[in-house]
Design a protein around this nucleic acid. Structure first.
Lengths: 206, 206
DNA sequence: CTCCAAAGTAAGTTATCACTTACTTACATG
DNA sequence: CATGTAAGTAAGTGATAACTTACTTTGGAG
């Protein structure tokens, strides 16, 4: 099951090297030479394992997707009401990004240099997956009376996701100048409080 | 006053060409060759007007900044309460982005290829300027009784700005697949309603 | 031990980039 | 009309990119 052929091990090495390098390098400056140097082989050796640099990007993005899904699943395991789980899902995403700064770099990379064709669909799938989970939890939260009746689950999720994305953008632009999870917790909690039913404090989320 | 030397006219041509091209091209694929072709001169001619490509990026970004400030100022002229003006500021920003898709491309461009050193400080200044205006309007709105007392103006602005940025990100990733201003109006109005004081509908913003 | 395929290397190849250079044209001014 | 300057061009230059090629090393199966 978990056994891998040596070729796959090498590919895993390469993916990990790219993720490492992306923590400190913009995607479009990640040349095959630098990747190879990080892995510890010559540049040409990369192409024994991947036919194309685009294929490397695809593998990297798929690994990111797996990590994200793992993080979401782990956040879902924690007990508590649906509203807590919604908050935990948001925080799990922020924690993932903090530990893997490659994520926003890849998501925001606009150009073809970072393999638009290979990466873009995976990014969209990733964001759709997060959105789905958030909508589901929002629906449950509302049903449980933790969120206002007059809010659509899609809108709840869109507002929260927007707050997360804006926060991550500012975090990236500021050179990671503040603690992402701390600030995110503050913002998400605040927003959930705003979306709580009218009697302000009683049925609230916290 | 408004008179310009011919050299400046040429520079304006180049800036406009870049902005045009950025509507359909990622920043890192905008070579001097393509810019020159758009302007209608040879590639080398560009360097008669700009010593460096970085200087072109800087000029472009400064033009973007001016457009943004003009848009914000125009939005501020419209009458109405501070809460309306806050909403209008948000919509003005979205309208600017819709008309000038280069803005998110430049803001999110992570790498050095698009002149990190020249562009980044201007981007930060731009975002800080928007934030300042939003915080000021949020403070006025709260003082006017349109927003809850227990919200800090900074947080009000941060939430709204986050919602805008997230929306723009999804708009860009989706290939501009929905109407930015329409959807933005819906989201911003919703958020302002959530932030309105407890008696839900009466003192609300709308 | 032999042999073969997977994995590695060094040195290409081709393309594109920002930028330069040597030379030419257009034009306003004295 | 002569002339100096701003603006233009075509053809480089060197750097760097992804990818290829010809050859060598290595390790396990027969």
């Amino acid at each position: 099951m978990t056994a891998r052929k040596s070729a796959d091990l090498r590919r895993a090495d390469i993916v990990e090297a790219v993720l490492d390098l992306l923590a400190s390098t913009a995607p479009e400056h990640l040349s095959t030479l630098r990747i190879a140097a990080k892995v510890g082989v010559s540049q040409g050796a990369l192409f024994r394992h991947y036919p194309t640099k685009d294929d490397i990007w695809r593998s990297v993005m798929e690994e990111v997707e797996h990590r994200a899904q793992r993080a979401w699943a782990k956040a879902a395991e924690i007990g508590g009401g649906p509203c807590d789980r919604l908050r935990m899902l948001c925080l799990a995403q922020l924690r993932l990004i903090e530990q893997t700064p490659a994520v926003p770099a890849l998501v925001m990379a606009p150009g073809r240099h970072v393999a638009e064709n290979s990466v873009r669909p995976i990014v969209l799938r990733l964001m759709a997956g997060l959105m789905d989970r958030m909508v589901a939890l929002a629906r449950q939260s509302r049903a449980a009376g933790n969120l206002r009746d007059d809010l659509q689950p899609d809108d709840i999720a869109a507002l929260l996701l927007g707050i997360l994305q804006g926060l991550v953008l500012r975090w990236s632009l500021s050179g990671r100048g503040f603690d992402l999870v701390t600030e995110g917790d503050r913002m998400v909690s605040l927003q959930l409080r705003l979306m709580a039913p009218s009697r302000p404090q009683e049925v609230s989320c916290d």
